[in-house]
Amino acid sequence: MEYSIVLPPLPTAAELPDSDDTPVDNELQNLIPNLLLAILSAVWGDRQDWFFGVDMGIYYLPTAPRKPVIPDGFLSLGVERRRRVPNGRLSYVLWEENWTPPILVVEIVSQTYGGEYDIKMEKYLDLGVLYYVIYNPDYWQRDNHAFFEVYQRVDDEFILQSQERFWIPQLQLGIGVDLGIYKGWERDWLFWFDQAGDRFPTPDERIEQAQQQAQQAQQQAQQAQQALQDLRNRLKQRGIDPDSF
């Protein structure tokens, strides 16, 4: 005789906690993934088939539906960018996302070690994550790892692929570390890169670029106006009325 296990109805996002109320160790744990989100929002502004979560619980275990894993950042493809609910997603609930796991997870290691190289790695394997990025700018020597590592799921384990910039074909984007300015803070950040290896600018840098372009356009307009005035003056010196043309 065959027996089947009948699970109780799975809870909805509204019935699940949207936070574990655990504070982050430092602001970089929020700033770094938020920068990745801000850049992606500009690069993929016309696309509606992706979602990037920051410090958001992921519920993925039908047998333990109220037990989340909470990455610093994660990216899912093939899901709605904006859920049609009043306040957007409260959390990322796999059974409400057509069982679509994140393709990429980002963790920033801080002073309090959070199991990024072991416990969380196993959880992300169970979740079905394909790429796992660990950024450890301050404590990589303590943890005997590089400051930036990208792991790819191969069969049932994560295999280290790169300790520098890494191209992700499914995204047609690279990810890596570079110097930039974000929120007025110049330091190394995680960035998305194009296929030529050029990184996409931060919001601060886009504003600066726009201001520079506006200044250049204003200078060109002033130069054109001055050139026109010089021409009018030369015509007048020759006894020609420029307004007669």
Rank of each mutant, 00 (worst) to 15 (best):
Q163R: 14
Y92C: 10
L231D: 03
Y139H: 15
R89L: 05
A210L: 11
R84D: 15
Q213V: 04
A38V: 03
P242N: 09
D241W: 12
P71C: 06
Q226T: 10
A146E: 14
V54P: 02
V154W: 02
I103E: 03
N87K: 13
L31K: 13
A221F: 05
Q212F: 04
Y132Q: 00
L10H: 03
D241A: 11
T202Y: 05
L37W: 14
P102K: 11
Q111W: 10
R234K: 14
R199P: 01
P86V: 10
Q163E: 15
Q229H: 09
W189G: 05
V106K: 09
L28Y: 12
F193M: 03
K120V: 01
Q212L: 13
P71E: 04
I58N: 05
F147K: 08
L7S: 01
E208Y: 10
E186Q: 15
D198Q: 15
Y124L: 04
Q223D: 09
L94N: 02
G184F: 09
M121N: 04
S110F: 11
L90Y: 01
R165G: 06
Q170Y: 01
Q209H: 10
D72Y: 07
G180N: 04
Q111E: 15
R199H: 14
Q229S: 05
I108D: 00
L179A: 03
F245G: 10
N233T: 09
S162V: 04
E157L: 06
I103V: 15
K183G: 00
Y139T: 05
T12L: 12
E97W: 02
Q218N: 01
M1G: 13
R89S: 01
P86E: 07
R238Y: 13
S91R: 00
E164N: 14
W50V: 08
F200E: 01
L7T: 06
M56W: 11
F245D: 10
N233M: 10
N26K: 07
R89Y: 12
D155V: 04
D46S: 15
W192I: 05
V133I: 15
L125S: 06
R66C: 10
D20W: 00
Y132V: 04
P101N: 03
I32M: 12
L104A: 13
I103G: 06
E157I: 02
A38G: 03
G239H: 08
F191I: 01
V133W: 12
W185R: 12
L75W: 11
P169S: 12
Q226W: 06
L179N: 07
L130V: 10
P65C: 06
F193Y: 15
W189V: 07
V54D: 11
A227Q: 15
R232Q: 13
V6W: 09
Q209Y: 07
